[in-house]
Design a protein around this nucleic acid. Structure first.
Length: 290
DNA sequence: TGCCCCCTGCAG
DNA sequence: CTGCAGGGGGCA
């Protein structure tokens, strides 16, 4: 899924588009994707759009909608004046399949929100891992998933000491695996955990207990830097991610290791290696990160 | 802490 | 055909 920068990108887009609109109707095409009662949501006005870790929240009067996009989720807003054509390349990584041409929803659309001004928000999710949850306002932050989340890495209080403290709960686990633990720090996934290790010049296989304070500090900088770059370039589109306008993100063009196995390191020309850590593909430069 | 699983589709 | 994919819950 979308990791923190991708969810942040969607959030920034939706804030501009849907705050103030009223949800007129919700169509649930895939019941598994929608946890709640649509009648609690229909007729409510959008007050705010926010993000916590990889979760997106939409506050309405009296209820909150929570979204987790997991691996293939998309939230695409279509204004009421848009008419799609066969040449429109805004969907699915720029390669519209026949069933998407000229229309939304497409075959991966799971939930459709219709606003009272005639515009739509489409929740698409090929693999159906993602979810939408309806919660009473105030009850939303007590959802188990949100309660377990660690600190927000882009907020002021996130220090290298806190990062070290949280990472150190898993002394014998490879650092890159622990960075992806949402209770340690919220929002890092496979791409940005790899990039943070590269930026810090740390081998992703190193166990947390073997890191020095200097390395924790580098890692802290690397985490923040890679996430900020991710946001700056509109997120990472490997296959599915698009922003609220349906546009791809370009961070992967600037990535140092993720997805670059067999290519030369942008710093030292050494071949980037791909290994498996914690069951996930992991990329690193054997020379820079040693 | 490490697997298997949820589900769908694509590349090799 | 097998393996793999921005995630993460549940189980030993």
């Amino acid at each position: 899924m979308p990791e923190l920068p991708e969810v942040e990108t969607i959030k920034l887009g939706l804030q501009k588009k849907i705050v103030g609109l009223t949800i007129k109707k919700i169509e649930v095409l895939s019941p598994k994707s929608f946890n709640g009662d649509v009648r609690e949501v229909e007729g409510k006005k959008v007050l705010d759009v926010w993000r916590r870790g990889k979760v997106l929240g939409i506050d309405l009067s009296s209820v909150t909608l929570l979204f987790h996009l997991k691996m293939t989720g998309q939230l695409i807003y279509i204004p009421n004046d848009i008419r799609l054509t066969a040449n429109d390349k805004r969907f699915i990584g720029g390669h519209p399949t026949p069933d998407m041409v000229g229309k939304m929803p497409n075959s991966h659309t799971r939930v459709i929100f219709e606003f009272s001004d005639g515009s739509y928000l489409y929740f698409n999710d090929q693999r159906r891992f993602g979810w939408i949850m309806v919660r009473e306002k105030g009850e939303a932050e007590r959802v188990k998933f949100l309660q377990k989340l660690g600190p927000e890495p882009l907020q002021k209080g996130f220090s290298w000491q806190i990062l070290k403290l949280n990472l150190s709960k898993h002394p014998k686990t490879p650092i890159k695996v622990v960075l992806m633990d949402q209770s340690v720090v919220a929002g890092l996934g496979n791409i940005y955990a790899s990039e943070a290790c590269f930026d810090a010049k740390i081998d992703p296989r190193i166990k947390v207990k073997d890191l020095t304070d200097n390395q924790f500090q580098s890692l802290h900088r690397g985490v923040i830097k890679s996430l900020r770059y991710g946001i700056k370039y509109g997120g990472s589109t490997k296959t599915h991610f698009v922003d609220a306008d349906g546009h791809k993100g370009y961070f992967l063009d600037y990535a140092y290791c993720y997805g670059r196995d067999k290519h030369p390191c942008k710093v030292c020309k050494t071949e980037i290696k791909k290994i498996t850590l914690g069951g996930r593909g992991t990329y690193f430069c054997p020379r820079c990160q040693s």
